[in-house]
Design a protein around this nucleic acid. Structure first.
Length: 883
RNA sequence: GGGGUUGUAGCUCAGAUGGUUAGAGUGCCUCGUUGACAUCGAGGAGGUCACAGAUUCGAGUUCUGUCAGCCCCACCA
């Protein structure tokens, strides 16, 4: 082992280790395997995407949970797959067609889809290969795709059933339309942003010549499609005018003035121009008052035919022209600055145009109710809990979901229209003959489904639905969904609704929500800012374990986290620390008896201490993991390994390892080796590669760490007994003494490596044995020699006091007595201050009466210790002053 | 217009169910090349836990309000 590299070089082993894991088949499981089922379905990354920090975080969290459960012995399945990502993928392919000087319409639907599939084949697996570099232990044998045969069958079955139950319907409605993507959008695909605009005040004259009414609008170009003007029924200003006709300027169409409750008397002039074809509210009012719908803007965002000089103009060009013309006509009577929310396409950020078109919708109310209930009754829990409110609030105000998209890439809607009798047939299988008139002239609905429709089925479609597979029986409902808060509406809520509807159970019991990974200035990582950090680059430089550890530490569930290279480095340093601690052990193990097993009597205090500490850490790690506090769990391990195992325990084994007592040496090596091995198992879910590569080299271990038992806190069997319950207290006395000596040396400027004499006065009898027996710990860690125990206090010495022990460093001639007195006085003041607070508490009858007994007892102990310290310091100050 | 969230050391952040002297990483200062590790070790400076009230024997932690930042939702033209 002497050839083990001096520093941690993850590049040397991560790829090989992953290959070993994958070929071993240990990522794979079956419904028949033993153990409690534990299943996570991956949030499928887009097929054309590549790994970004958000994925890295999401995958890391999932892999930690998965590896932990696998080690616990659960039948653990991590179901991987990718999403076809309708609009996003289609846009990419269209972009490449544009580069070739053509477009999808020239190519035709069939050829175009061939191109997209080619694209998918080419880039589809890139991201899953990148996931492997992170260490993700997915069951790759089961990899799925939202448009594969099974998922497509699930989509058709669900669609047809919902249609037959009347929960899917087709209707002519006003919907959000993106003129650039050329498709309808659902409400949540529209992002509202406040924009500065104008409020134009226009005068519409009455047809009878009796004056005019003033309306206000933010979108003057839509006036071409006005078919009425509305006022509030109770508005005294207009009450007597309702029913009169107006002349629409520029167009000279007669339109009615009518009353509707929707109108807000306070806003603008209290009179609204009504354009049913281009505004959702106007559409509703139009329906209520039988107003005609006049479409003046096309799907491409241009003015329609038949509008004279305005036809063919872009909507914003037309706005300028209309405003100019209205002004010229004397209709425009004022312009106000006005800030208002404008909808944008979440994909391309084009301003959305509300348009009337025929679309497919899912009726949400009856689907949402059970999904709300599932959370309220605790069948589904959000971590952190606050997201339940967001989820419920959305579902309680849900509106019907527009699921049809005017795209080609996606699940084509399984509806056919008979050209002979005009009827519609919705069917799971292709329709060639009309069941109504037996006509054979059918054409299929051209639209495809919203990508999220198939994503909504993901937890059960990947497990085999619509087939009734053993996997579906065994692993559904799955245990946890790990995802970002940004897709709770898009995805989580819809999966819950569909899962409840089609499986009768929630798709997962917990939703573990994480935040976004931001750049070092707290900005979202984005292409336009070019501030993204490529996780693949981080892995190449520092290793996947470092990236994983960085992503999981110092972060709390649901909160965003910032990416800092310095934090990656710090994680890498931790890995290096483990690497070198292991290297130290392996070097010492070379010529040793690797099969030696000590008895309880062979163990020293430090051995029993480190084993006791490890047990407690193991318990804390598991507790934290159960609460989804992965960062806390990682922190426990970091602190244990670095500060307790490396900084203290390893140092304390050195005298035995370099000494002549073979049995003592073997004992130390045994404890070093077993504690390290156990710590590696605890750490494995977080840093899988490093822990595997090191554990393989340890003696008496077999098999991959990924299948080893996860520590339970009951390790080391009979090597620890009930008598060892006080090892922590006993060790603390020694370590506190060490710290105090180091401190004193540093304060008077003695080189920390220089040996000096120390005199200890033990204040409590129960500590004298341990201090006597293990005084070598003090001399080794604090670099002091000789250590003598004495009752008298050396006069020319600097001193300190810890619980139970007075410490003197006799330093003739080196000490400035006045300085020493000042130092001790300062210390005394500090302790007195603390003691008075504690004493105050204990004098308070209400504290004694109401606080729990153990808290009161704790305060008493604290006060006693403080008083011991005070008296020691006082005596010492008096002694020095008398000199 | 609703709702959420954040405000703790110079910087980035941890601090379940209220109970020691409020922690870590990083940065800074002083020392240190004996065989695990300078990707390190020892020591140190640095915080009235945004502000104001309330509850409580006791509040960084619970409640109310204020201020500041961020985010989400929302069909007032």
């Amino acid at each position: 082992m002497s050839n083990i590299a001096k520093t941690y070089e993850p590049q040397q082993f991560e790829k090989t280790i992953y290959k070993d894991w994958e070929t071993s088949g240990n990522f794979h499981t079956t419904a028949e395997a033993k153990g409690e089922p534990y299943c996570i379905v991956i949030p499928p990354p887009n097929v054309t995407g590549q790994l970004h920090m958000g994925h890295a975080l999401d995958e890391t969290l999932q892999d930690i949970l998965i590896r932990w459960h696998r080690m616990k012995g659960d039948n653990t399945l991590w179901m991987p797959g990718t999403d076809h990502a309708g609009i996003a993928t289609q846009a990419k392919v269209e972009e490449s067609l544009r580069a070739e000087g053509t477009n999808r319409y020239e190519l035709g639907r069939k050829k175009f889809l061939e191109r997209v599939w080619q694209w998918k084949e080419k880039f589809g697996n890139r991201i899953t290969y990148q996931l492997r570099t992170l260490g993700s232990s997915c069951d790759w044998d089961r990899q799925r795709f939202t448009m594969d045969e099974g998922c497509s069958a699930a989509v058709r079955k669900v669609f047809v059933q919902l249609y037959n139950e009347g929960l899917i319907y087709r209707g002519t409605r006003i919907t959000n339309w993106c003129p650039k993507c050329n498709t309808a959008l659902s409400d949540i695909e529209v992002e509202h942003e406040n924009e500065k605009g104008h409020l134009w005040h226009l005068r519409y004259p009455f047809a009878d010549g009796s004056g005019y009414i003033e309306v206000a609008t933010t979108r003057p170009e839509t006036m071409l499609g006005d078919t009425g003007v509305a006022v509030h029924p109770d508005d005294e200003r207009y009450k007597n005018l309702v029913g009169k006709m107006l002349i629409l300027p520029l167009v000279n169409r007669e339109i009615p003035l009518f009353a509707d409750d929707y109108v807000d008397k306070e806003f603008g002039t209290g009179a609204v121009k009504v354009t049913p074809a281009h505004d959702p509210n106007d559409f509703e009012m139009g329906m209520r008052h039988n107003l005609p719908q006049i479409k003046v803007i096309t799907n491409e965002g241009k003015m329609t035919e038949g509008l004279g000089k305005y036809s063919g103009l872009d909507r914003y060009e037309c706005r300028k022209q209309i405003v100019a013309d209205l002004e010229a006509a004397g209709v425009l009577v004022g312009i106000e600055e006005h800030e208002h929310a404008v909808g944008h396409c979440s994909r391309c950020h084009t301003t959305v145009e509300p348009l009337i078109s025929k679309q497919w919708f899912v009726k949400m109310e009856s689907l949402a109710a059970p999904a709300i209930d599932a959370v309220k009754t605790g069948k589904l829990k959000f971590v952190p809990e606050r997201f339940t409110k967001i989820y419920i609030n959305w579902l309680e105000n849900i509106r019907d979901w527009c699921i049809s998209r005017q795209l080609w890439w996606g699940h084509q809607i399984p509806a056919w229209y008979c050209d002979d009798c005009g009827k519609m047939i919705v069917s799971e299988t292709d329709v060639e003959e009309c069941p109504h008139c037996h006509g054979k002239n059918l054409h299929r609905d051209e639209d495809v489904l919203d990508t999220w429709f198939s994503s909504a089925l993901w937890p059960f479609s990947t497990l085999g639905y619509p087939e009734d597979t053993p996997e579906l029986k065994k692993f559904y409902p799955t245990n946890v969904l790990v995802t970002g808060y940004d897709i709770i509406f898009f995805w989580v809520a819809r999966m819950v609704m569909m899962g409840l509807k089609f499986r009768g159970e929630v798709p997962f019991k917990h939703v573990f929500i994480h935040g976004l990974v931001r750049d070092d200035q707290g900005r979202k990582m984005s292409k336009s800012l070019n501030n993204g950090v490529d996780p693949v680059e981080v892995i190449e430089k520092y290793g996947a374990d470092s990236l994983r550890f960085m992503l999981v530490t110092g972060n709390t569930p649901g909160n965003d986290l910032r990416f800092y290279w310095s934090r990656v480095e710090s994680a890498r340093n931790f890995a290096n620390k483990i690497w070198n601690a292991s290297r130290f052990l392996l070097m010492n193990l070379e010529n040793a008896d690797k099969n030696f097993r000590p008895t309880h009597d062979d163990l020293e205090l430090s051995d029993r201490w480190i084993m006791t500490r490890l047990r407690k850490v193991g318990v804390n790690v598991s507790k934290s993991l159960e609460r989804f506090e992965l960062g806390e769990a990682a922190r426990y391990l970091y602190e244990f390994i670095w500060f307790e195992f490396c900084d203290y325990y390893i140092e304390l084994t050195k005298s035995r390892l370099y000494g002549d007592d073979i049995r003592a040496k073997s004992t130390a090596l045994f404890v070093l080796s077993s504690v390290l091995e156990c710590a590696l198992r605890l750490l494995h879910p977080f840093m899988p590669f490093l822990t595997e590569v090191i554990r393989r080299q340890l003696p008496n271990v077999e098999g991959s760490i990924m299948l080893a038992d996860y520590p339970t806190g009951e390790e080391f069997g009979d090597l620890l007994t009930a008598e060892d319950d006080n090892v922590e207290e006993m060790t603390d006395v020694i370590l506190n003494t060490v710290k105090c000596i180091r401190n004193l040396k540093s304060e008077v400027g003695i080189d920390s490596r220089k040996k000096v004499a120390v005199v200890l006065k033990v204040l409590r009898n129960e500590y004298s044995d341990v201090l006597n027996e293990y005084k070598n710990y003090i001399s080794e860690l604090a670099v002091v020699e000789p250590i003598t125990f004495a009752e008298e206090k050396p006069a020319h010495a600097i001193s300190g006091v810890v619980e139970g022990v007075e410490i003197y460093l006799p330093l003739d001639g080196v000490i400035d007595m006045d300085k020493e007195i000042a130092r001790l006085t300062k210390e005394l003041e500090k302790v007195r201050k603390g003691a008075s607070v504690t004493a105050g508490k204990l004098k308070n009858e209400r504290f004694i009466g109401k606080a729990p007994a153990e808290v009161v007892e704790g305060e008493r102990v604290k006060l006693a210790a403080a008083e011991e310290k005070i008296s020691t310091l006082e005596q010492r100050i008096a002694q020095l002053s008398a000199l």
